[in-house]
Nucleic acid binder design. Structure first.
Length: 488
RNA sequence: GGCCCCAUCGUCUAGCCAGGUUAGGACACCAGCCUUUCAAGCUGGCGACACGGGUUCGAAUCCCGUUGGGGCUACCA
């Protein structure tokens, strides 16, 4: 297969500044990244902003930050497509001079009417089959007279065929291709002109983009040739679908990388999940670092069918990476979510306790948000218990007394470490002739107001002597209060 | 409508190009093990070649058609 062993390449990712980085775009960027890292060369980031009067600086920032967060680096740019407008116009003028394009003075009304007519006849509308392009003299005269016109590309005769790394050989019949517009009547270049000009200017060798551009490619290929550029290798990726099997939209969940970031996902998980959506490294490998993917990447293994975005698998991958990445990274990434929980600016003992809480819970949290939500309980002055969740404990009349004893022994324990804490509780359980679990569960409820969590003695140790006694006392009071109610 | 693309478990996929597999893996789901709970982990289960014709001794794999899905069809990108 051509391309994969071709040495240094130049790829580009060319999103339009919509205000967010769509996951579909992110995946396109990932494959560009993978191929560029695999073969060497350069990744150009180009912002396709030609339809905007002025592209919003914030939107560009958004895209850059999204790529950075996702772990997709680029070598050149961001380059604004709008910056090349004069160059694009010059290219159109050159095509005009060479007779490869022509001015069209037809009004929208005329064109609409002609299209409607052809529609009725059920034939494809093609400009030159209906209208005669103006002669050179006529064109010159009307241009000089200041008449508005657009510049149309004169599509060469014959079908347009090209090879696509994903689709194989693709051919579009001549009659399906029309003389498309290069320059609007206000002189602005259209997308097609700009893209091809820029791809030539930036010496792009591989165009990896969404399938929605496949039908644009028969416009681009002849334009590359007309402009004397090297036609790049194309790879059109299948689209990403939502769970409704329709094009991914907000209806079925998050669609932008910043949303996933805000949901507390790790970028490694998103990168991994997206890369696997339409590509597989083979050998049943699913969890891979970017470096491993670079090592294994081949466009031959790109899939050609659309894929439903599997959010469950993303969640699973994320849970995996919650355990895989370094603790330092967890610490750094969970920071904004902790702040949202009101846990910020901790120092000394409190900071140390926070770190231990995070270490204890990272393997239990599916996201950074979940992880951050675990933390406040360890710093609360008191817990809020719910009767419905404590029914089992309320039915055990001796429990308050046992907990009272435990509280006293924990308060008097010479050291507050795992082994001591466990020994004390188990000893008490033996004394009162119950299984350890009979004490363990209510203690967990007392300390964290939850029925499940990390191993209890870790929780007690992290909580500390003072808070443990306080929570135990409160819980005992709670039990007695409601036991009385039940009797009365 | 026309043109182009696509089609394996609910989902992501391997296998297809160079026909012969009990059609493999993962997520999800279910059960069990482990365990003080939860999570993780481990074991097992459930579960697919869209349909119809060919070609062939033999088709998930090659060919044609049907159906279904998607994209494009602008002086949007």
């Amino acid at each position: 297969m051509s391309g994969n062993n071709a040495g240094p390449i130049r790829v580009r990712f060319a999103p339009s500044p919509t205000g967010f980085l769509h996951v579909g775009g992110a995946r396109t960027a990932i494959y560009n990244d993978l191929l560029r890292q695999r073969l060497g060369g350069a990744f150009v980031l180009r912002i396709e902003d030609t339809d905007r009067a002025r592209s919003d600086e914030a939107m560009i920032q958004q895209i850059c930050q999204g790529l950075e967060w996702a772990g997709i680096p680029w070598d050149e740019g961001p380059i604004l497509q709008s910056a090349g407008v004069e160059r694009h116009r010059a290219a159109a003028r050159r095509l005009l001079d060479e007779g490869k394009a022509y001015p069209c003075f037809r009004t929208r009304e005329e064109l609409d009417a002609a299209r409607a007519e052809k529609e009725k006849e059920r034939v494809i509308f093609r400009y030159r089959e209906v209208f005669e392009p103006p002669s050179e003299e006529e064109a010159k005269r009307r241009i000089d007279a200041g008449e508005p016109f657009v510049v149309r590309f004169r599509m060469p005769a014959g079908p347009v065929a090209f090879h696509d790394l994903v689709r194989g050989d693709v051919e579009f019949p001549e009659e399906t291709q029309d003389d498309f517009i290069l320059l609007r009547s206000d002189g602005s270049p259209t997308y097609h002109l700009s893209v091809v000009c820029d791809d030539i200017e930036m010496e792009i060798t591989h165009v990896i983009r969404g399938e929605d551009h496949l039908s644009n490619t028969p416009k681009h290929v002849p334009l590359f040739r007309a402009l004397g550029g090297q036609v790049p290798v194309f790879a059109h990726l299948p689209l990403i679908l939502g769970s409704d099997k329709k094009r991914l939209s907000k209806r079925t969940g998050a669609t932008s990388v910043e949303e996933f970031r805000d949901q507390g996902l790790l970028p490694q998980a998103l990168y991994n999940a997206l890369a696997l959506l339409g590509w597989s490294p083979g050998e049943d490998r699913e969890i891979l670092t970017r470096d491993e993917m670079v090592e294994l990447f081949s466009t031959e293994r790109l899939n050609s069918s659309a894929a439903v975005f599997d959010r469950d698998k993303l969640a699973w991958l994320n849970a995996h990476y919650m355990n895989q990445v370094s603790f330092e990274e967890i610490l750094e990434r969970v920071q904004p979510f902790l702040e949202a929980q009101g846990l910020a600016g901790f120092e000394g003992d409190k900071l140390e306790r926070l770190h231990r809480v995070l270490a204890l819970h990272r393997s239990r949290a599916k996201t950074l948000v979940e992880l951050a939500e675990m933390a406040p309980a360890y710093f609360a002055e008191e817990q809020t218990y719910e009767v419905e969740r404590c029914g089992k404990f309320l039915k055990q009349p001796q429990l308050p007394a046992w907990l009272e004893t435990l509280k006293a022994r924990y308060g008097a324990a010479k050291s507050f470490d795992l082994e001591t804490l466990e020994a004390i509780l188990r000893e008490l359980a033996t004394e009162v002739e119950v299984k350890a679990g009979v004490l363990i569960h209510p203690v967990r409820m007392a300390l964290t107001a939850t029925k499940a969590g990390p191993p209890l003695f870790d929780v007690v140790e992290v909580m500390g002597r003072e808070a443990t006694e306080r929570h135990l006392a409160n819980f005992i009071a709670f039990l007695q209060r409601h036991a009385v109610e039940a009797e009365g």
